[in-house]
């Protein structure tokens, strides 16, 4: 496989939900060390865009490319390098946090470093919940389990749909640190949020999604 530089490109992307067209002609490019911040009102298609970028749904028109190839064709390579945390956490109620991470790693076909996983869970403030099934955890705590999985997976591209929902002040600060570190390490992030973010020194690419043809802003 040729070693093309990691880059997420979107060409002339259009998306429709049912009869309604959410956006058309969306173009952008995301390079290593950048964070794409998707903004837009409720129901404007932020989540739909993120699902298109993951390959969970297919666009009405246009193409998403990873390292220059359409993600349809290089699905396995792309999915190995990408982690998605959606609206729902993907955390199983009957498993403990560590078992959840173990399962997620097995499903994503990634090796799991147990010590690192445990350390990450503790870092995410779940020290006191390690023996509890996720059923008894609060929404914010389950969110933290999902975000721990994101860190442990160590993927290059993070696609995050409202990662801050349900998190307390410390949680938000923690996520901000994680994002900064990830981008500084040469990672890439695509995320949506309605909350203000304090990301110092991060190369943020803003993107408005809406009825009008969206134009990428300055970098």
């Amino acid at each position: 496989m040729p070693e093309t530089p990691a880059k997420l490109t979107v060409h002339d992307l259009a998306c429709a939900r049912g009869e309604r067209t959410l956006f058309t002609g969306l173009d952008f490019e995301l390079n290593v060390g950048q964070l794409l911040l998707v903004r837009g009102g409720n129901g404007r298609g932020k989540t739909s865009l993120l699902r298109l970028l993951c390959g969970l749904s297919s666009p009405l028109d246009g193409e998403v490319r990873w390292r220059g190839d359409p993600i349809r064709r290089t699905r396995d390579v792309y999915h190995r390098e990408m982690t998605y945390v959606g609206h729902v956490n993907g955390v199983k109620d009957d498993l403990t946090p560590l078992e959840n991470l173990r399962m997620a790693a097995a499903i994503a076909d990634r090796p799991l470093d147990e010590a690192h996983a445990l350390e990450t869970l503790k870092r995410m403030g779940l020290e006191r919940c390690l023996d509890l099934p996720a059923r008894v955890l609060s929404f914010g705590q389950r969110r933290r389990v999902a975000l721990s999985g994101l860190v442990v997976a160590g993927a290059l591209l993070w696609i995050l749909d409202e990662p801050l929902t349900g998190l307390d002040v410390h949680g938000v600060a923690l996520v901000e640190t994680l994002l900064c570190q990830h981008v500084a390490q040469g990672g890439m992030v695509v995320m949506t949020t309605h909350q203000p973010l304090a990301l110092d020194g991060v190369d943020i690419v803003p993107l408005m999604v809406g009825e009008l043809s969206a134009a990428p802003g300055g970098q």
């Binding site: 390959g55 969970l56 390579v77 999915h79 190995r80 993907g90 199983k92 109620d93 994503a108």
Partner: peptide, 11 residues
């Protein structure tokens, strides 16, 4: 609970 999405996103 969203884990089906994650299974579809498996390589």
């Amino acid at each position: 609970d969203g884990s089906l999405e994650q299974m579809l996103l498996s390589p």
